[in-house]
Amino acid sequence: MNADSGSMEPVDTVDEPGWDVDPEDEIASVVEALGRQQKRWREAAGLSVVEFADAIGYGEDLVRKVERGARIPRPEYLDKADEALGARGFISAMREEMAKARYPKKVRELAKLEERAVELLLYSNHNLHGLLQTEEYMRALLGVRRPAYLQGELERMVAARMARRSVFERSPAPDLSFIQEEVTLRRPIGGRMVLRRQLERLLEVGRLHNVELQVMPTMHSGHPGMSGLIEMLKFGDGTAVGRSDGAFNGRPVSDLRQLRILELRYGIIRAQALTPGESLAFIERALGET
Rank of each mutant, 00 (worst) to 15 (best):
A3V: 09
D4P: 00
S5H: 01
V14S: 09
G18E: 05
P23Q: 10
E24F: 03
E24V: 02
D25R: 10
A28C: 06
S29L: 07
V30Q: 04
Q38W: 08
R42M: 11
L47W: 02
V49L: 10
A55F: 04
A55L: 14
G57Q: 06
A70V: 00
L78V: 12
D79S: 14
K80Y: 00
A81W: 01
A81V: 11
A84N: 11
A84V: 07
A84G: 09
F90S: 11
F90L: 12
S92V: 09
V107M: 14
R108H: 09
L113Y: 03
E119T: 11
L121Y: 01
N127D: 13
G130T: 06
Q133N: 08
T134G: 13
Y137T: 07
V144R: 12
R145V: 12
R146C: 00
R146Q: 15
P147W: 04
G152F: 01
G152S: 11
R156E: 13
M157W: 08
A163S: 12
F168I: 07
F168L: 14
P174H: 01
E182I: 03
E182N: 07
T184K: 13
L185K: 02
I189G: 11
G190R: 04
G190F: 05
R192Q: 14
R192V: 13
M193G: 03
L195K: 07
L203A: 09
E204A: 05
L213W: 02
T218H: 08
T218A: 14
G222V: 02
G225M: 00
M226Y: 01
E231K: 09
L233G: 02
G236M: 06
A240M: 13
A240H: 12
G242F: 00
S244T: 08
G246R: 06
F248K: 01
D255R: 08
Q258V: 00
Q258H: 10
Y266D: 03
G267L: 01
I268T: 15
Q272N: 09
A273V: 01
T275C: 06
E278N: 08
A281C: 05
A281I: 02
R285M: 04
L287K: 09
E289R: 15
T290A: 13
